[in-house]
Simulated scan of single mutants.
Amino acid sequence: MWLKTTAASLLVLATPVFAEEAAKARPSAAATTGGNAPDTLGTLLSLGAGLLAVIAIIYGCAWIIRRMNGMTGMNNNAIKVVSVMAIGARERIALIEVGGQQILLGITPSAIRTLQVFEEPVVDAGSGNSGDFARRLQSMIGKSWTAPNKE
Score class of each variant (00 low, 15 high):
residue 1 M to S: 06
residue 3 L to E: 13
residue 4 K to W: 08
residue 4 K to G: 06
residue 4 K to Q: 09
residue 5 T to C: 07
residue 5 T to V: 15
residue 6 T to N: 10
residue 6 T to E: 12
residue 7 A to D: 05
residue 8 A to K: 08
residue 9 S to C: 11
residue 10 L to S: 06
residue 11 L to F: 06
residue 12 V to Q: 02
residue 12 V to K: 04
residue 13 L to P: 01
residue 13 L to Y: 04
residue 14 A to E: 05
residue 19 A to K: 03
residue 21 E to M: 10
residue 21 E to H: 08
residue 21 E to W: 13
residue 22 A to T: 03
residue 22 A to R: 07
residue 24 K to G: 00
residue 24 K to C: 02
residue 25 A to Y: 06
residue 27 P to Y: 04
residue 28 S to V: 04
residue 28 S to A: 11
residue 29 A to V: 11
residue 31 A to R: 05
residue 32 T to D: 10
residue 32 T to N: 09
residue 34 G to A: 00
residue 34 G to D: 01
residue 35 G to P: 04
residue 37 A to K: 08
residue 37 A to Y: 12
residue 40 T to R: 06
residue 42 G to Q: 01
residue 42 G to L: 00
residue 43 T to N: 00
residue 43 T to Q: 03
residue 43 T to V: 05
residue 44 L to Q: 11
residue 44 L to W: 05
residue 45 L to E: 02
residue 46 S to G: 06
residue 46 S to H: 07
residue 47 L to F: 09
residue 47 L to W: 07
residue 47 L to V: 11
residue 48 G to I: 02
residue 52 L to G: 11
residue 53 A to H: 06
residue 53 A to G: 15
residue 54 V to D: 00
residue 55 I to M: 03
residue 57 I to R: 12
residue 58 I to D: 10
residue 59 Y to N: 11
residue 60 G to W: 03
residue 61 C to W: 12
residue 62 A to T: 02
residue 63 W to D: 15
residue 64 I to N: 09
residue 65 I to S: 00
residue 67 R to Q: 14
residue 69 N to R: 14
residue 71 M to P: 01
residue 71 M to A: 14
residue 72 T to K: 14
residue 73 G to P: 03
residue 75 N to K: 13
residue 78 A to N: 07
residue 79 I to D: 15
residue 79 I to P: 14
residue 80 K to S: 13
residue 80 K to G: 05
residue 82 V to N: 11
residue 82 V to H: 12
residue 82 V to F: 13
residue 83 S to R: 14
residue 85 M to P: 01
residue 86 A to M: 10
residue 88 G to I: 02
residue 89 A to S: 14
residue 93 I to V: 15
residue 93 I to D: 15
residue 94 A to D: 02
residue 94 A to S: 12
residue 95 L to N: 01
residue 96 I to E: 04
residue 96 I to S: 06
residue 99 G to R: 05
residue 99 G to D: 11
residue 103 I to A: 01
residue 104 L to S: 06
residue 104 L to E: 10
residue 104 L to D: 03
residue 107 I to Q: 10
residue 108 T to P: 04
residue 108 T to L: 00
residue 109 P to G: 07
residue 112 I to P: 00
residue 118 F to Y: 13
residue 121 P to L: 00
residue 122 V to F: 05
residue 122 V to S: 03
residue 123 V to P: 04
residue 123 V to I: 15
residue 125 A to G: 04
residue 126 G to T: 15
residue 126 G to D: 14
residue 127 S to D: 11
residue 131 G to V: 02
residue 132 D to G: 03
residue 133 F to N: 07
residue 133 F to S: 11
residue 134 A to N: 05
residue 136 R to I: 09
residue 138 Q to H: 10
residue 140 M to D: 07
residue 140 M to W: 09
residue 141 I to S: 07
residue 141 I to F: 10
residue 142 G to Y: 03
residue 144 S to N: 14
residue 145 W to M: 12
residue 145 W to A: 10
residue 146 T to H: 07
residue 148 P to D: 09
residue 149 N to C: 04
residue 149 N to Q: 14
residue 150 K to S: 13
